[in-house]
Structures are given as C-alpha cells and as structure tokens.
Nucleic acid binder design. Sequence first.
DNA 1: ATGCTTATTGACTTAATAGTCATTATCATG
DNA 2: CATGATAATGACTATTAAGTCAATAAGCAT
Lengths: 219, 219
Amino acid sequence: MTTEKPDIGATAKAPRRKRRKEARPGEIIAAGLLEFADKGYAATRLDDVAKRAGVAKGTIYRYFDDKQALFLAAVQSHAVPTVGLLEKFVTEFDGTTRELLNQLFRIVHAKLVQGDLQILMRIIITEGRHFPELTELYYKEGVSKGQAILAKIIKRGIERGEIRDDAAAALPIIILAPAIMAIIWKMTFNHLHPVDPDTFFAAHVDLVLNGLLVHEPKV
Amino acid sequence: MTTEKPDIGATAKAPRRKRRKEARPGEIIAAGLLEFADKGYAATRLDDVAKRAGVAKGTIYRYFDDKQALFLAAVQSHAVPTVGLLEKFVTEFDGTTRELLNQLFRIVHAKLVQGDLQILMRIIITEGRHFPELTELYYKEGVSKGQAILAKIIKRGIERGEIRDDAAAALPIIILAPAIMAIIWKMTFNHLHPVDPDTFFAAHVDLVLNGLLVHEPKV
DNA sequence: ATGCTTATTGACTTAATAGTCATTATCATG
DNA sequence: CATGATAATGACTATTAAGTCAATAAGCAT
C-alpha cells in the first residue's frame, strides 16, 4: 500500500504522473473487466477500477462516458475470434466424428472452461439480463455461429453413418452441455468440491459420445 | 399505479394500514425473492421490495435486521424438499435404469428448469460468489445430496448391467448437465431464441441414455 | 366505549459512490 | 529553455438508496 506501484516495463524512473494516451484505455478496460467479473456490475466501484488500473478516477472519464460505457467496452474488447477458428477447424477436418468431437471439446474446455473466455462467460451469465444489447451481441457473434458449427458436425456425422439418426439434431448445443455445467461448477461450487479439469473433459467426451447405457446389438 | 392494490383474500375492506404480524414476513420474503432474482442483490432497492410487498420500507426493518438478512431469509425460505423427495423416489424405484432416469429427468426439468426452484438456481448462480455461506448451505443441503443420489443410480445401473462400466462414475452430476444448460439458456438467450421445454427434456434423455454415436455390436 | 400496546408508516439522516471540473504536471515543439 | 496544449489528478457535488425513528393508528383488553 505504501510502496510505489511498480512501473511495468517503464524506462523512466516513475514520475508521479505519466501521460500515456495510447496505453490507458486498454489498461482501464483490463482492470474493469476483472472488477466487473469479480464483483458484478452494480457492486464494482470505479475507484477500485481506477486503483487497479493505476490511474485516478477522473482519468477513466477522459476515455469513457460513464460506468456503463466502460463495462460495454470491456466486454466487447474480448471479441470472439475462437468461433472463427473453430469454423475453419471443423470445415477442414476429415477424420472420424469421434476424433472431431474429441478435438472440439478439447478446444472448448481449454478456451471457455479454463481459458480467458471463462471470465466472459461468467459476465454474460450473471449480467446478461441487465444488458440486453450485450447478450444480443454475444448471441449473434458467438452462440448462433457456434450452433451452426455444431449442427454441421452432427449433419456430417449422420451422413457418414457415425451419429445416430436425428440424435441431438433438434438441439445441437446440447452436446456442449457438460462444458457449460463445468463453467457453472467452477463459478459456484469448485471451492467447496474441487473437480479436476481433466475429469470434466473426460466425462464430457465419454457421455456425449457413448451415453450411459450398455449398448447391445439390436436384436 | 393510481388504483388501490387489491387485497388478496382479505375479508376487511382495505384500511390504509393493516396489522398482520404473522403474514408480513412471508409476504416481504416473497417480494424480496422476486426482486433479488430479477435485479440481483446489489441492484434491488428495498423501496421496491416494500412496494411489491404492499408495505412501507420501515416495516421491512421490523422483521429483518438489514438488506442482507432479508436476502438470506428469502433464499433460505425456499428449502430443498425436492431432494428428499428424489431420495425416496430413487430408493423405492425398481424398474429399469432407462425408466428411472426418464422419470428423474422429468422431475428435475419440472422443478429446477421450469418450476419454482428455477428462481433459486438463478440466484445461486449469479449471487453465490458474493454470499459464501449461502453457497455452502445449498451445496450441503442440495448439491451434495443430489450427487449422492445420482451416484447411487449409477452404481445400481452398473450392477444391473444396464449402465456401461464406470460411465459417469467419476462425475455423476454430469448426467444433469443438459438440465443445467437449459437453465442457463432460459436465463440468458431464451428470449432471442426460444426453445420448447419438451425439446430440452427430450434431448436430455436421448443424449444421456444413448450418447451420440451409432453403436455397432462390438466385433 | 376507553385506553393501551405495538405494528406500521414515511419523512429524515447517513453513507456510499457516480460523475464533474478547476488545478496541476507532463511533454512536444520551436 | 520557455511555452502552449492537454493528459491526469483528486477534491468536490449530486444523487441514490440503506437504515432510523418519532408520530400514528389498528385492534385487543377491560
């Protein structure tokens, strides 16, 4: 508290003020995202965001109109490039459906469940109701495209005779349900009952590919 | 706004004040629960809760120490009798695992996804992080017991030769993942892309029981 | 009816924080 | 080195909502 904050990678010897028109918005956004994710929109104080970003509160208002503008900027800054990546991956893939899903789930768990997008998921889930435009944005950019990819995988699988006819066709996103559950679990109960990420992943793959039941040859 | 609020089931003809020591706490709790679920803890105003409950703000403080006490009382008032019910149901059931899970999922969807417990799920998911004691309570009363029930079902299924050896044994709760996904979907995207409850239910049953893949007799 | 207890009220006080702005410090430029 | 432009500051104001309490009135007891 009493120590000067370390000037990360700065060459000068820490003047008490620093003009950094370029770097500031990004730093404020990063700080804001963390605070919003931690406390929720209503409960985060801009003073805390400022402190975390290493600026005074007034500085925030040089770059953002108000608290909501900062919030929207913060959430939107985390674009959704992962979806585009997945799209390409799926289109070009030519192995078995089993392998395709295995890889897909691996990426989803790495990015959404464990990775940096997890924080975004939490915000959408907890604050989405209060920011309809935001939910809509993420629905359009992320969810609906994701669904299209899943639908394509399922169609492909059915055509190749690897996926049961019509399985999950009415609700493709259900094959990601275990990943969503993992996110919720991490958000809420993981500290009381820690679950290993690999356990989530393995259970996901196993359940979705094979289901629960013993499969006897149809008589 | 200008009309008198209808006095629900009252016999007297609406005096401007009414003394109802017994009924008040429950009404305030009910109103609070709705407001908290809708706005989130930080953003709900006790004036709104009071208005919804048909009392003055001061009255809230006769029955609850402060906002947080009301919140905790509201959430805890929705006890978790469903779990006990499930426990009995599962213990006494003696049909096939397929039928058992079908019934179980039906209850879960009726109560958790669509029913009155949905509101509680939303609160735990969105506010749990800020109220550790609450999360702990629900973990102990609801989640851990629910997990035990699921574990029992799986064990039973394996013993009866109906469930694949070790399937979901490491993470029993995963068989409810589609229901959890349904809750999240309803919370966030349902207004943009409505999904029929039966679709959720059917997809849940189908995925968990059968998985995605075509099951050829093992060669 | 009369009086007494206390549930209820809502105006008031207090606390917290979003948002403002006059002042100050930094730095590019000549 | 002096100077103008402006990024940054933080004390200040405005606003909102939690929490208080003296006054009021419902309804019970006598």
